[in-house]
C-alpha cells in the first residue's frame, strides 16, 4: 500500500525532576534531583495513505502535539522511525517541510503589524514559489477562504476567524501534499468553523491533500474524517473508520418508548430497561443481536405504545468511553 506517513514504534521520552514541597524540598531536589523518565509518546505506530483525512484525537496531554511535532521535524524522537513522503524528517528536515503545511490554531505565523498579504509575499520567497503558481494559488485560496475582504488589513486587526483563515492560506501557499492542522477551529464561531471545514474538504477533494487534524471539537471529526486515530497516555488506543470505532466501543443502542397508559410487564428478552420516568421507558439493546424494527415489533405486541425513538450513540460518547477505559496506566 502506498503511504505518505509511516510511523513505527515512536517513543518520546521526557525527564521529569520530581519536586518536593517547601524550601527543604527545593534544596533537596536541587542537590539530589529525583529524575523520573516519562514517555510522552510511548510506542505509537500507524501509517496514512495519500488523500486521507485523519482525525488525531485524544485528551489533553495524551501526546498528540508531541507526535505532530515529531512528524513535522520539530522534535527528535527518542526512538522509533518516521517517514514522511518517504523521507525521515530528522534526517532531512528541509526536504520534508517543503511538502508540509502546518497550522497551529493557538499560534500564528503571520506578522502582527503587517498586512496579511505581506506575510504571504515573504512565504512566497521562503518556499521559492514561482510567481505564476503563486498568483494562481493565491487566487484560489482567496476565493475559497474569502480573503479578499481583509487581505490588506493588518493582522492585529483581524478577527480570530479571519486570522485563522489567513493562517490556513499561509500554510497552503506552497501547495503542500500533507496538511497538519492542530486545533484549527479552536475558539471560532459556527460560521468560521463551517468555512474552514468546507475548505478542508475542498482541498482534499480537488488536490488530494492528505490532512491530519487534531481537535477537541468532535463535530470537526464527524464531518471531515474518514478515519480516526485515538491516543491516550502516549499510546495508540484506537485506529480505524469512525463508524466501526463507534460500533466497537458502544455496541448498545437505546430505544425510548412512551406509553399512553401504564403497563405491568415491561420486560422483554431482547433488551433491558435501564431507566423509567412515568410513562417513558429507556431500553438498551445490542444492535448485533436484534434490529430496532424487530424490537419495536416485539414490544408493540405487549405494550400500549404511543411514541417511539431510537438513539444512536455518537462520536462523543464513543470517545468519552475510550478516554475513560484507557485513563489509568
Amino acid at each position: 500500500m502506498e503511504t505518505v506517513i509511516e510511523v513505527k514504534d515512536l517513543v518520546k521520552e521526557y525527564i521529569i525532576v520530581k519536586k518536593e514541597s517547601g524550601l527543604r524540598g527545593s534544596i533537596k531536589s536541587l542537590l539530589f534531583p529525583k529524575k523520573t523518565k516519562f514517555n510522552g509518546v510511548n510506542g505509537i505506530s500507524f501509517s496514512i495513505a495519500p488523500g486521507e483525512i485523519v482525525g488525531y484525537i485524544g485528551p489533553n496531554g495524551a501526546g498528540k502535539s508531541t507526535t505532530i511535532k515529531m512528524l513535522t521535524g520539530i522534535l527528535h524522537p527518542t526512538s522509533g522511525s518516521i517517514k514522511v513522503c518517504g523521507i525521515s524528517p530528522q534526517a532531512d528536515r528541509k526536504a520534508v517541510v517543503r511538502k508540509l503545511g502546518v497550522v497551529f490554531g493557538q499560534r500564528t505565523q503571520l506578522y502582527w503589524d503587517l498586512r496579511l498579504g505581506e506575510s504571504f509575499e515573504l512565504l512566497c520567497r521562503i518556499y521559492q514559489i514561482d510567481q505564476q503558481a503563486y498568483d494562481d494559488n493565491l487566487a484560489i485560496l482567496t476565493d475559497v477562504l474569502k480573503l479578499q475582504e481583509f487581505i490588506n488589513t493588518p493582522v492585529r486587526q483581524l478577527s480570530l476567524g479571519q486570522r485563522m483563515r489567513g493562517d490556513i492560506a499561509a500554510a497552503m501557499l506552497h501547495s503542500p501534499s500533507v496538511l497538519f492542522l492542530d486545533e484549527p477551529t479552536i475558539g471560532l464561531d459556527a460560521d468560521a468553523k463551517h468555512a474552514i471545514r468546507n475548505f478542508i474538504k475542498e482541498i482534499n477533494r480537488t488536490r488530494g491533500v492528505t490532512v491530519i487534524l487534531t481537535t477537541h471539537d468532535l463535530d470537526d471529526v464527524e464531518q471531515l474524517c474518514s478515519r480516526i486515530i485515538v491516543v491516550n497516555n502516549g499510546k495508540l488506543v484506537e485506529d480505524g473508520p469512525i463508524g466501526s470505532i463507534i460500533h466497537k466501543l458502544t455496541p448498545h443502542r437505546l430505544l425510548v418508548v412512551e406509553l399512553h397508559e401504564p403497563a405491568d410487564d415491561l420486560t422483554t428478552p431482547h433488551a433491558t430497561v435501564i431507566k423509567q420516568e412515568g410513562l417513558k421507558i429507556w431500553y438498551q439493546f445490542e444492535k448485533e443481536s436484534i434490529s430496532a424494527s424487530e424490537l419495536i415489533a416485539a414490544l408493540s405486541q405487549k405494550l400500549p405504545i404511543q411514541d417511539i425513538s431510537v438513539k444512536e450513540p455518537n462520536v462523543e460518547d464513543a470517545i468519552r468511553e475510550v478516554y475513560k477505559t484507557t485513563a489509568t496506566r
Partner: peptide, 8 residues
C-alpha cells in the same frame, strides 16, 4: 517551531 517548519 515555526523556523523549524520552513525549508531554510
Amino acid at each position: 517551531d515555526r523556523l523549524l517548519l520552513r525549508p531554510m
